[in-house]
Every structure is written in structure tokens, then in C-alpha cells.
Write a protein that binds this DNA or RNA. Structure first.
Lengths: 110, 110
DNA sequence: CCACTATTTCGCCAATCCGCCAAACAGAAA
DNA sequence: TTTCTGTTTGGCGGATTGGCGAAATAGTGG
């Protein structure tokens, strides 16, 4: 097994680890609906500003989201669309962009 | 937001968290090639028996793998095939079952 | 320049996770 | 029964993570 395989696995693990927190998953679900500024993400989240900011930096470090300054605000957007696809594959209710397909009933992952 | 959405998000987060560790990711990659007994997984892993067993129990609790007793051995298999699909989507080298498609070159995740 | 808003970083503490060792447990064989 | 092999579980030290409030930073307006 090459050492690049190990490095790559670590990077992938970082992606999963970043998604392995309900608050960050909530943020990603929201971002599936399009760009959001930090203040909007704070509104939908339970924690405070610093907490949300930290979650966002974790997601950014993993390459899952990208940020961009718009005047006084910072906008975040999903940088890894296949994350959304995978969430749909897992099925379940909390989906922000999968109402079109008839699937996604209960929280059963197939 | 319904409380079932929160519960469901926690379960999903548990799936991601379980995959958010290089050793467990390595195990999942191996299981993409088919059933493996614990002793085989210990061989390909860096840690000892107890460590591998604990990783397996985490994966099982998240619903990612299933186990079955075969005589004296316990066999584990992938219970969530879409995990493999998602890994392919992330691209990169350490793939155990994606040599067919021409994609998956470097460790770049699109 | 100062004040204000939006956001990030810093320090702290509690909680969780990781890997190891030893012990426990289950099943097959003697 | 005892013994052996394969696997899981309990406990410990050390490292990492999560969330909060306070402080720092960046950009805008007066």
C-alpha cells in the first residue's frame, strides 16, 4: 500500500469526520439550497456565533464548503455536490433539496 | 423542524463519524471486496485485535457493516453499499472496487 | 479619527475518542 | 471437564473535540 494511499485516506477521513456532527450536517443541508451568509446559518443553528464559525472552518478545512466575501458578509457555499447525493442515498427526512424524487420517506438508510 | 428530523440527523452524523477515522475507512475499503473475517481485517490493519474489534463495533452500531458467525470466525460485510459509491465519487487512489471505471486518478475530490 | 457590524480567533473546561493491556466470553476439540 | 483459538469488553492514560464568552480582526459609515 503506497503512502499516497494513506495520505488520501486521511483526507477522506477528514471529510467524514467533518460531516460527523449534527450541527455541521444541518449547515450542509441548508447549503444545499444555495449560498448562505454566516448570519443566516447562525439563525438556523442552536449554538452561538463562535460555535457556528468554528463548524464552518472545520467544513472549509475539509474542502466541503467554500467561502466568499460579499461586502460586509461572508457567504458559504457547498463545494462538494456529491455530499448531497450521498445524503439522498441515505434517505430520511432532513433533506433540503430532494423533494423532487418520490423516495426519501422515513429515516431508513438503504 | 420536527424532532424526527433531529433524531435522523443524529443517526446520519453517527454514520459519518464512524467513517471519519482512517482505520475504519481502511476496513470499509477492504469490505468492498466482499466478506472478511476479523482475523483478515486485523492483518491489514495497523492496530491490535482489540482495536480492530472496537472499530468494527463502531461501524456496526452505525449500521455500516453487518456480522455473521461462521463456525469459529466472525465475518463482516458491508451493509450500506452506497458508501462505496460515495467513496468513488470522492475519487482518489485507495479504492478496492472501482478499477472498472476509467476515473479515480489522483486524490482529488470533485 | 471613532464607532458600529459581521466574523474569526483565543482560553478555558467538560466530554468524548484512541490505542493498548488484561480479562472475559464463546465455540470446538481433546 | 480442560484447553485452545477467535473475538469482544473493561479500564486506564493521553490526545482531541465541542461550546461558551471575551477579545481580536476586517470592513463600512460618520
Amino acid at each position: 500500500m503506497s503512502s499516497t494511499a494513506i495520505t488520501c485516506r486521511k483526507r477522506r477521513a477528514a471529510i467524514f469526520k467533518a460531516l460527523g456532527h449534527p450541527a455541521r450536517l444541518r449547515i450542509v443541508e441548508e447549503l444545499r439550497g444555495g449560498e448562505r451568509c454566516v448570519c443566516e446559518l447562525v439563525d438556523i443553528s442552536a449554538g452561538g456565533w463562535s460555535t457556528v464559525s468554528r463548524h464552518l472552518s472545520v467544513l472549509k478545512a475539509a474542502g466541503i464548503v467554500e467561502d466568499e466575501k460579499h461586502g460586509l458578509h461572508v457567504h458559504y457555499r457547498l463545494a462538494l455536490p456529491c455530499v448531497g447525493t450521498f445524503l439522498d442515498c441515505l434517505g430520511g427526512e432532513p433533506a433540503s433539496a430532494s423533494k423532487a424524487s418520490g423516495a426519501a420517506k422515513s429515516c431508513k438508510h438503504a
